[in-house]
Amino acid sequence: MIRILAFVLTLGMLAACSAPPSSTGDEVQRLASEIRSLGPDIDPVEAERAARIAYSYSAQLAQEYEITDPPLVHNAKVNKGLRPRGLCWHWAEDIERRLDQEGFETLEMHRAIANADNPFRIDHSTAIISRKGETMRDGIVLDPWRYGGVLYWSPLTEDTKYEWVPRDAVLEKRRLDQHGALLPYVSG
């Protein structure tokens, strides 16, 4: 019982550290401007549409995921089957899929994972939008999980909370690690 209480208190303290950014009312326009700044060939209409969708779809997903708690508490509810979705990789997968449906000609989506090699922290996944043909390093993090459905965004280079690694690289490393662990024993 003491362990359960300690766990709940720890989750509560971690959740308290995750206050969403203040809302100024011009978030969509600020994000659209940041997307336009990715390069001179970014279509301003696409930048506006991507920003609008990123905000509105994050709000829609928060409703669908039944978000009522801070992220780590919600994660526990998802893992116990009390909520349908809402783990960070759900947010990243869903927002990437939705933005990819737009068929942008000047923008491209990427996926990234942080903390994959850190045994003291849980993995965190996100979607990143960049100029078409650029790497994720040149993009903008779109992370609705971080503040429980309130979209956090930042140029990747300015997101100092996480060290993002391309998702494919993390998954390939895990595949190789698993393959090595599963090789049959051959006696010599």
Rank of each mutant, 00 (worst) to 15 (best):
D159C: 10
I53Q: 05
R167C: 14
E93I: 05
F7E: 01
T160E: 00
A16Q: 03
Q101C: 10
T68K: 15
S154Y: 01
Y65P: 04
F104C: 07
Q178A: 15
V8Q: 04
G133D: 06
D177Y: 00
D69T: 08
R52Q: 14
M136D: 00
K80Y: 11
G39C: 08
E134L: 13
E102L: 03
M136I: 06
Y65D: 03
G180W: 00
W91P: 10
C17D: 00
T10G: 06
I53A: 13
R111Y: 10
G103S: 04
K173M: 05
N75V: 07
G139K: 01
G103L: 04
D168Y: 06
Q63V: 11
F104D: 01
E108T: 09
Q60A: 15
F104Y: 12
E34S: 15
H90R: 07
Y65K: 06
N79G: 15
K132M: 15
E34W: 05
E108V: 13
A116Q: 02
E66K: 11
A54G: 05
T157W: 00
V45L: 14
K132Q: 14
T157E: 00
W91S: 08
H124M: 13
I2P: 04
V165A: 13
G25H: 04
L11E: 04
S58L: 02
I140T: 01
Y162M: 09
